[in-house]
Lab assay of single mutants.
Amino acid sequence: TEYKLVVVGAGGVGKSALTIQLIQNHFVDEYDPTIEDSYRKQVVIDGETCLLDILDTAGQEEYSAMRDQYMRTGEGFLCVFAINNTKSFEDIHQYREQIKRVKDSDDVPMVLVGNKCDLAARTVESRQAQDLARSYGIPYIETSAKTRQGVEDAFYTLVREIRQH
């Protein structure tokens, strides 16, 4: 089974770092803004072998026109913010609204991801993020692309959301 996953969120929150940590098991430290990259990885989730087709997208506003296209083809979405960047957390709402509009559905598989949880300088409390996820009816997972904490959990949870859909 193949799953088309799309990673969305503001610029600099760590979308590529999360994806590369999942696929290649290493942490990319330097920031190089993405336009669009796709990665494929075969994994076993709950005993089922599946192929993850992951689209890593641009957070930069100037590429926002490309969003409709990949939102149409994606089956599930990782909505990523950084726990030390309140603005990126506030941006999640717009991504969710755009996904709902493009998919013409209120019920699209999504996982809210709070990345950079290895950093002490948190400005978005776990509780705020949990409340937001609960209001959307989606899971919330904290990750660190640096330490790998929660990385597999985030992507695998999204696959489970798609399966249950």
Rank of each mutant, 00 (worst) to 15 (best):
N25I: 05
N25R: 03
G76C: 12
V44I: 01
K146S: 15
A58I: 04
Y95A: 09
L22S: 15
T34A: 01
P109E: 03
A120D: 13
A145P: 15
R67C: 14
F155D: 09
Y140P: 08
K116Q: 15
M71N: 05
G59N: 08
L18I: 04
Q24R: 03
I92S: 01
V6E: 04
D118R: 04
H93G: 11
R148H: 15
E2R: 02
K103A: 05
C117Y: 14
K146Y: 15
A145E: 13
R160Q: 12
I99R: 03
I99S: 02
V80Q: 00
Q69K: 04
V6L: 08
A154I: 15
V43R: 11
D37N: 01
A145C: 14
T19C: 02
I54F: 12
E75T: 09
A82D: 11
A129E: 12
G137E: 13
Q21F: 13
V151Y: 15
L119G: 15
G47K: 06
D107S: 08
D46R: 08
K146W: 14
F77Y: 10
T1D: 04
Q149R: 09
S135E: 06
K15M: 00
G59M: 06
Y3M: 10
S144C: 15
G74L: 11
T143S: 11
G137D: 10
N25S: 05
E48D: 01
E125H: 11
T86K: 00
T157R: 11
M66G: 15
V44M: 00
Q94C: 04
K146F: 14
V113F: 06
V80S: 02
A129F: 14
K4I: 01
S38M: 00
D107E: 04
G47L: 03
C117H: 06
A17W: 01
C50I: 04
I83V: 03
D104Y: 03
A17Q: 12
K41S: 07
R163F: 08
M66R: 13
G9I: 00
M71L: 07
Q94V: 11
T57Y: 12
D104R: 03
Q42I: 05
T19A: 12
K87V: 00
E97S: 08
R160F: 10
V111D: 08
P33T: 08
K116H: 15
A17T: 00
E161D: 07
D91P: 01
V7W: 10
L51I: 00
A10W: 06
Y63D: 15
D118C: 14
D131M: 13
S126N: 13
T86N: 02
E152Y: 09
A65F: 01
D68S: 09
R72M: 00
H165M: 11
N25A: 03
M110P: 02
G137Y: 13
G150R: 09
V8R: 05
V8W: 08
G76N: 06
V113I: 07
E125S: 12
V124G: 14
L5A: 01
F155Y: 07
V151A: 14
I141A: 08
M110D: 02
V28R: 02
S16A: 00
D104C: 05
V102M: 07
L132N: 13
M110Y: 02
D118H: 12
E90P: 05
V28D: 10
D104H: 02
Q128P: 11
N25Y: 06
R134H: 11
K100H: 04
D37V: 03
R67E: 15
G114M: 14
Q69N: 03
V80W: 00
V113Y: 03
E152P: 03
D107Q: 10
A154F: 09
I83D: 09
P139A: 10
A129L: 10
I20P: 00
A120C: 13
T86G: 04
E48K: 00
M66I: 03
E152F: 13
F155L: 15
L78W: 05
S105F: 05
L22C: 13
R134M: 13
Q94S: 08
D46K: 13
E36A: 03
L158T: 10
D104Q: 06
G14P: 00
D104K: 05
I45V: 07
Y156A: 14
S64F: 04
T1V: 03
S126D: 12
S88A: 06
G150V: 15
G74E: 09
I92W: 02
E36R: 01
K116A: 15
Y156K: 15
M66K: 15
E142C: 09
V44Q: 07
A154K: 02
I23M: 06
L18K: 10
H26R: 00
K15I: 00
Y156I: 13
R127C: 12
Y136N: 04
S38C: 09
Q164G: 11
V43T: 02
I92E: 06
K4Q: 03
T19I: 08
F155M: 15
K4C: 07
R160A: 12
S38F: 02
L18M: 08
K4T: 05
V6Y: 14
P109V: 05
Q164N: 11
Y140K: 03
G12R: 14
I20L: 01
V113C: 13
D107C: 13
Q42E: 00
Y156H: 13
V124Y: 11
D46P: 03
S135M: 00
T19W: 01
D153R: 11
R101L: 08
A17H: 00
T49L: 02
V80R: 01
K146N: 15
K15W: 00
T147P: 15
Q24H: 08
K15N: 00
D106G: 06
A120H: 08
T123H: 08
Y3P: 12
L132H: 09
M110G: 00
Y70L: 14
Q164T: 12
T143A: 12
R67I: 14
T157G: 02
Y70H: 04
T73H: 11
D32G: 07
T19M: 10
K100Q: 02
E125F: 11
A120V: 09
T123V: 09
R148T: 14
V111L: 14
C79D: 01
Q128G: 11
A82E: 11
D107I: 06
K103V: 04
Q21P: 01
E61K: 13
A82S: 06
G11Y: 14
S38H: 02
V7I: 04
G47M: 01
I54P: 00
K4F: 01
G114V: 11
Q98H: 08
Q60C: 15
Q42T: 03
R148M: 14
D53C: 02
F89R: 02
K41D: 14
D104T: 05
H165L: 10
D37C: 00
T123Q: 11
R101C: 03
A145W: 08
E142T: 13
M66C: 09
E30H: 05
M66E: 14
F89E: 07
I45M: 09
I92P: 03
D107W: 10
D131S: 09
Y70Q: 04
T1I: 04
K100F: 08
V13N: 11
K116E: 15
L5E: 00
Q69L: 06
A120S: 07
S144I: 14
D56Y: 01
Y140S: 09
D91L: 13
V124E: 13
I162G: 09
G74R: 04
T143C: 14
Q94R: 13
A145K: 00
R122F: 03
F77P: 03
Y31S: 07
G114I: 13
G11Q: 15
L52K: 02
L55K: 00
A10T: 08
S135P: 12
Q60E: 15
G74W: 01
I83L: 07
K116N: 15
P109K: 04
I99C: 07
T123E: 12
V13K: 10
V102R: 02
E97G: 05
D37E: 03
R72F: 08
K103Y: 05
A17D: 03
D68T: 05
Q24Y: 08
V124T: 10
T34P: 04
L22A: 14
T19G: 13
D37T: 01
D56T: 02
Q24F: 00
E125K: 11
E62Q: 12
A154Q: 05
A10H: 07
Q69H: 03
